[in-house]
């Protein structure tokens, strides 16, 4: 009884914490990194007062937010107002259950992992809509409507681009998808090459799906103050913040897994030497490669934010419906041909 309880209850919780705690820390450091990078791009210093190089700024912000009062606006819907941040946070964290960090290093190696990811990312929009509605504020409602329309539109392009990955890999299991990108031609075996337009569509849709600049009309400061979370303060706001950044990191990881070979090394197949376990990971692949790829992808989020002006609403809708969805539909057919005629063979030599 005791041993079974340990295996079925205690260890999964420990594993979940092994993902969630580093994720929360990563969000904190990512916020710091964002402010630093955007500072450099603006020829400013960025945060530099708290801790060496301002590295503790994020923790100071967390403490500040947690100590603040959570204000309930008058005639707001109390239950939904407090429920909304949780509805935004839970899918953002739950999606990590199927993310494979390394070969056999995944919390839940489910067969329908890709579908599960689509389900989880589509649930996140409830937190945003309900936050906007329950706040009893015009600005919040407008932000929620903009956000919902945008997320639904870009979800389609995102889903269709994942269909291309699915066609080439022949599996919905994320570990299998990474294995399908193995081979003897190094980084040329990864899916970014046969699916290049789809890779770009996927990542831009990911930026739009997380409501980040240049797609951040949902919280366009100059128009609707802060969008759906305008009435939230203190820890409730911090939860929205956490969910948004966790989603950004998730999109970076997923783009790395689907298109950049996950934990596989860019040198795979070119070097087969057996030097020492400390060096072998450079060509056999390890979680370090996944972290490097995800870091570079998440850097793009910050680069976009510092570079591009905000899209207008009709431009966002046009890009999603008239550009991205046709591209992905055509590329589903192209990917089908690649698979059928054997131009791309999944997992050669792996």
């Amino acid at each position: 009884m005791g041993e079974q309880l340990l295996n079925e209850l205690v260890w999964p919780v420990v594993y979940i914490l092994c993902i969630a705690v580093p994720l929360i820390l990563a969000v904190a450091m990512f916020v710091y990194w964002e402010r630093k990078v955007i500072g450099w791009m603006h020829v400013r210093m960025g945060p530099n007062k708290i801790g060496p190089f301002g590295i503790l700024q994020a923790f100071a912000d967390v403490v500040k937010l947690l100590l603040k009062e959570v204000i309930l606006p008058s005639s707001a819907n109390r239950v939904l107002y407090y429920l909304a941040p949780l509805l935004a946070l839970v899918p953002a964290f739950a999606a990590w259950a199927v993310v494979p960090f390394d070969d056999r290093m995944v919390l839940a190696n489910v067969n329908a992992g890709l579908l599960y990811l689509l389900a989880m990312t589509s649930l996140g929009v409830y937190g945003i809509i309900l936050a906007g509605w329950a706040s009893n504020s015009r600005y919040a409602l407008l932000g929620a409507m903009r956000s919902a329309a945008q997320v639904i539109s870009y979800e389609l392009a995102m889903g269709l681009s994942l269909v291309c990955v699915l066609v080439l890999a022949g599996s919905l299991n994320l570990t299998d998808i990474v294995h399908a990108q193995g081979g003897g031609k190094g980084f040329l075996d990864w899916f970014w090459l046969p699916l290049l337009p789809v890779f770009i569509v996927y990542f831009i849709s990911g930026v739009a799906e997380t409501n980040r600049a240049p797609f951040d009309v949902a919280e366009g400061e100059s128009e609707i103050v802060a969008g759906f979370h305008v009435e939230y303060s203190g820890s409730a706001f911090a939860i929205f913040f956490l969910a948004e950044y966790a989603n950004m990191i998730l999109v970076s990881f997923l783009a790395s897994i689907f298109f950049l070979g996950g934990w596989l090394s860019p040198l795979q197949g070119w070097i087969t030497a057996d030097v020492s376990p400390w060096v072998n990971w450079i060509w056999t692949g390890s979680i370090i490669w996944l972290l490097i790829k995800a870091f570079l992808m998440s850097f793009l989020f910050l680069w976009f934010r510092a570079t591009f002006p905000r899209y207008r609403y009709d431009q966002i809708m046009r890009l999603g419906w008239k550009v991205f969805i046709p591209i992905t539909i055509v590329w589903v057919l192209v990917a089908g041909c690649m698979k059928y005629f054997g131009w791309v063979i999944a997992g050669t030599g792996a």
Binding site: A112, L118, A119, S122, L123, I152, E155
Partner: peptide, 14 residues
């Protein structure tokens, strides 16, 4: 999962 993606994620949001 299809029920969640289609009904919860899309239809019910609209």
């Amino acid at each position: 999962i299809a029920l969640i993606v289609v009904y919860v994620g899309a239809v019910m949001v609209l």
